[in-house]
Design a protein around this nucleic acid. Sequence first.
DNA 1: TTGACAAAGATCGTTAACAATCATGAAATA
DNA 2: TATTTCATGATTGTTAACGATCTTTGTCAA
Lengths: 251, 251
Amino acid sequence: MVLIKLAFKGSNVRNTPQVRSDNESEISSDPDEKMIVERIYKAVMEQRLAPNTKLSEASLCTTFGVGRMRVRRALLLLSSQGIINLHSNRGAYVACPDKSEAKDVFEARMLFEPPIVKLLAKDPSNEGLVLLSEHIALENAAREKNDRTEVIRLSGEFHVKLAQATGNSFVLRMMRELVTRTSLIVGIFGSSDNASCPEDEHAKILDAIKTGDPESAVQLLTSHLAHIQGGLDMDTRMQPQDDLASILAPA
Amino acid sequence: MVLIKLAFKGSNVRNTPQVRSDNESEISSDPDEKMIVERIYKAVMEQRLAPNTKLSEASLCTTFGVGRMRVRRALLLLSSQGIINLHSNRGAYVACPDKSEAKDVFEARMLFEPPIVKLLAKDPSNEGLVLLSEHIALENAAREKNDRTEVIRLSGEFHVKLAQATGNSFVLRMMRELVTRTSLIVGIFGSSDNASCPEDEHAKILDAIKTGDPESAVQLLTSHLAHIQGGLDMDTRMQPQDDLASILAPA
DNA sequence: TTGACAAAGATCGTTAACAATCATGAAATA
DNA sequence: TATTTCATGATTGTTAACGATCTTTGTCAA
């Protein structure tokens, strides 16, 4: 499979001439690199990769079937997003936020998310809101199927899509970072699945937005965040799982 | 010079044992890389490096006296922060935000900065506020000396220190990104020095915070941001300067 | 003169080998 | 037996050479 890819890339046909599309405001234009980053990012988001898990270059090379350089660049990108930590001459480890960082993340979300929902509630005709309704349907479906990782992922993604509905790329980018870090923190300090089952809080928030009630929306959001934060057990930390990366198999 | 450095690094004395200090929540633990990123970052912030300026690997290698690998990693980090854009097989260019991005940045700042100053105004005893007073003194000094680049840098850094005063690392990180992008935008669309001379608006904002008047502080801040945005000329763009990088000389 | 085409040069992407560092475990000593 | 020391193996950091792609320049023909 990999060989096919490389053959395509090395062939003389210019099927994908990588035309200079400056609109691509993406981090990396390389599909391989992006894929590696996405896979690890997703595994962290879904709490399948526990904090402090070591990501050795060799294992990543074999699992992804790419050279060391790609893996190295992907790790650097992940570290710049705070998803992993690079230790000199010691390797890459999944980030493990401490209590102080956890406090900062929730404080930042308490500060930044209210303006977002307030803005959305002031324009309930926003077309991005239909995506949120669909999203909540997905959440319910995953919850009924007891698909734990999917519930966790969708639960965080709701807030990302909330930011996405503003149509502002920077708002989206920042909410992504905050949600990712929140996911890590819930993975570390989360007592059982308490924090990952917000019942129908998301639906309530969306309803308040759609009915054009900013105050209620903000109120529901803040209590939702407080609920998540309150569900954390700040004293017992999860162990760093040490298995190899068969976790990163499918898309 | 380079050889001396390498000799130090390769020597057997463990003068800097690079002890695993996990508190270092920094992007890169490598001093060289950090230095390169900082130098380019600063040059962009001070608008000495114009948008669309090409940053070839070779020139950066010679100016910084490091190998190609370090330069490559630094460029990747800068691109992940949106400061430069990497084009496949074509090199690295200083980012050049368009009108749409400019709109998004100011919209995001209008959304996120008010909660910050509101928070600060609710606790005027905050010790971080003394740094802001000192900062305004620096701004005035630089303005009297007609030190253009310094004025630009300090003008942006005021908002960063505003975020820093919250003591929240994520708030700081996000404001850094927004201010950096703002600096780029002002460099592109800024008509003359209109946007970089906020008179004493910063001082007024700080006063409102210190007197514990959140409403006034927010009001002053929003009008300040609107003032900057209004000073932009969205139709005439700066040319990409094409000189080599003697711009990156001193610290 | 202008346009297209081709070759040369420059720049970036990739790979593989080497060097340096860290982790592991055995052996020796107290 | 516990502890230290040292040697071995594994992993990361670095370099240099090679290959691919793009840009530029020069030539030829219309």
